Simulated scan of single mutants.
Amino acid sequence: MFFLRVMLRIRSLFYLISYKTLYQNKFNFNQLILLGRMFKLEIIGRESRVVFQGKFYCRNNIYIVAENGNVSIGDNVFFNNGVSICSMKKVHIGKNTALGENVKIYDQDHVFNKPGDMYKQGYKTEAVTIGENVWIGSNVTILKGVTIGNNSVIAAGSVVTKDIGNDIIYMDKREPTMKKIKRKNN
């Protein structure tokens, strides 16, 4: 067990040195953070930043991308396997927060109601803020513009599209719906 902990620290140090060398002042951390296998960080754009404000531990297959956006992760935060964050504006995660497996956080949505190629229509962005001492269950998706209050729990499988206050247990029991896309001509 001791050997595995030493190897985890060496691997984490390798990741940190590599990303600090590559991204310089766009990537900041205050202390050694422990990173599992397949930790991937992409920082794209002049104003983009990724900041770890304290202790951080994650398992495997973590993907964080700041594309013209900022990601801020508080002290004592944990990510389980498969967490993905994509920021084109701002994502903030407060201290003492835990994310379950396969949590996805997006601070943008695709624009899709214009004629023409879907992938060329652009994005709408709004910041995502997750408070302190929050537990987010497995397979949760958090979408743009959401604020989750302190001491809240998000149940596994939920899709969060609206703000959640402090001290709330949120469960999303969705029913399937289909709507026709209404195209707008410019």
Rank of each mutant, 00 (worst) to 15 (best):
K20S: 15
K114I: 08
E126S: 13
T21V: 14
F14H: 15
I142P: 07
I64L: 15
L35Y: 07
Q24H: 12
S84W: 10
K182S: 09
F112N: 05
V159Y: 00
N76E: 10
P176D: 06
T129A: 03
F112A: 05
I142S: 03
K55C: 08
G149N: 10
Y15S: 06
G82N: 09
M38C: 14
H110F: 14
C86Q: 14
D107R: 01
Y23G: 14
Q53P: 04
Y57S: 08
N102S: 07
V153I: 13
R46W: 11
Y23H: 08
F52Q: 13
F112K: 01
G116F: 04
V91F: 04
E101M: 15
I73V: 14
F78C: 10
N139Q: 00
N60C: 06
G116K: 03
N150D: 13
T97P: 09
K90I: 09
F27A: 09
A156I: 01
K179M: 08
I85T: 11
N60M: 02
M1A: 14
Y63E: 08
D172G: 07
S18D: 08
N102H: 14
N166G: 03
N102Y: 12
D107T: 03
Y119D: 08
D167L: 05
V77I: 13
K89V: 07
N185A: 05
G137E: 07
S72E: 11
V71T: 13
V103R: 05
N68F: 14
V65A: 15
R9K: 07
K184D: 05
